[in-house]
Simulated assay, not measured.
Amino acid sequence: MIFASARLAFADIFSAPFRGALWKALGLTAVVLVALWFGIAAIAEWFAVPFLSNLFPDVPAWVDQAGTLAGWAAGFALAILLAFLIGPISAVIASLFLDDVAEVVEANTYPEVSAGTAMPFVPGLILSVKFFGVVILGNLLALILLLVPGINIAAFFVVNGYLLGREYFEFAAMRYRTEAEAKALRGRYGTTVFLAGLLIAGFLAVPLLNIFTPLFAAALMVHLHQRVSRKEGGLIPGEATSAARMVRG
């Protein structure tokens, strides 16, 4: 069930129907990263010049050059941190398009079931912030645990596997269920969701490929939720969607 869902999700993210969400997410991520690069470089240069001017008032030309170097050094430091930043930034941006991803998966692979209900703007924005917080927290915890001998890399996968699996599965489930129902379903299939989360963590650990993590995770969990729902007796077309819509108002 898990590997079949992962295989379908990996094929999904590079398929033609996904390209709209994919390019929007990648484009916005690139814009944010470039803006961070130049913004931090400019701020570093802006602070460095007055500071160095006070220390070396007789060499203004050297101070200007040093300020420029400080700006570029800050940009270089940011480049080193991209491996850490690209995951959270792409997560919060791509989360704005997760419902688009879910709709494509549901329509193309599960046409016999009515499409789920997208979240309204405000709850969707809250979910985006939540995804950002989860990825940041997971990576910070994993970074701290990297210093503990014997568990380091395993900690990264366990922490991210649990957090990412939980959040993305509940996202997929809440397109058809209330939040309480989604959490209860995840509880009944906790091991399955965690193992699927480990696959997402593995995706996140691969440089460059990790920018696709939110789209892969959303597609994976939509597939998994649909398959789990079949084991639960199936989603009745229209009824679950209507119930979710009534709860969300």
Rank of each mutant, 00 (worst) to 15 (best):
L82D: 05
V92N: 02
N54V: 09
A35S: 15
L26C: 04
G87W: 01
S114K: 09
G116P: 03
A115Y: 02
A83S: 07
V129P: 00
V134I: 15
L52T: 08
A66I: 09
A44H: 06
L137W: 08
V122M: 08
L137A: 15
F56I: 07
A44G: 09
A142Y: 12
I93L: 10
W62A: 14
A21I: 05
L141E: 07
S90I: 04
A94I: 02
L125Y: 05
L36E: 06
V134G: 13
A61G: 06
L33E: 14
W72A: 01
A48C: 08
F56M: 10
I43H: 12
I93M: 01
L33V: 15
P50E: 06
D58M: 09
A42L: 14
G116A: 03
P17V: 08
L55A: 12
A107N: 10
V113M: 02
S114V: 04
L125P: 03
G87Q: 07
F47K: 02
A74L: 03
F132S: 04
G71H: 01
A70C: 05
P111G: 11
V92H: 02
V92K: 02
A118F: 01
G133E: 04
F132K: 03
V92C: 02
V134A: 15
V31E: 00
L137C: 12
A142V: 10
V129F: 13
F97Q: 00
F38K: 12
N108T: 11
G67N: 09
A91L: 01
L33R: 10
I86K: 05
K24G: 03
T29N: 03
P111R: 11
G116F: 02
L141D: 06
V105H: 01
G71W: 04
G133A: 11
S128N: 09
F56L: 10
K130A: 12
R19M: 15
P88A: 08
S53W: 00
A61H: 09
R19T: 14
A142E: 15
A115M: 00
I86C: 10
L52Q: 06
K24M: 12
L98R: 02
D58N: 13
L22A: 14
V104T: 12
S114T: 15
L140F: 15
L143S: 15
F38A: 13
V104Q: 14
V122P: 00
I136R: 01
V34W: 11
P57C: 13
L81I: 03
G87M: 01
W37V: 03
A41Y: 10
G20V: 09
P50R: 04
T109Y: 12
K130D: 05
A107T: 14
I136C: 03
F131R: 12
T29Y: 02
A77D: 08
I93N: 00
G27L: 12
L55W: 08
E106I: 06
G138N: 13
G67F: 01
S128Y: 05
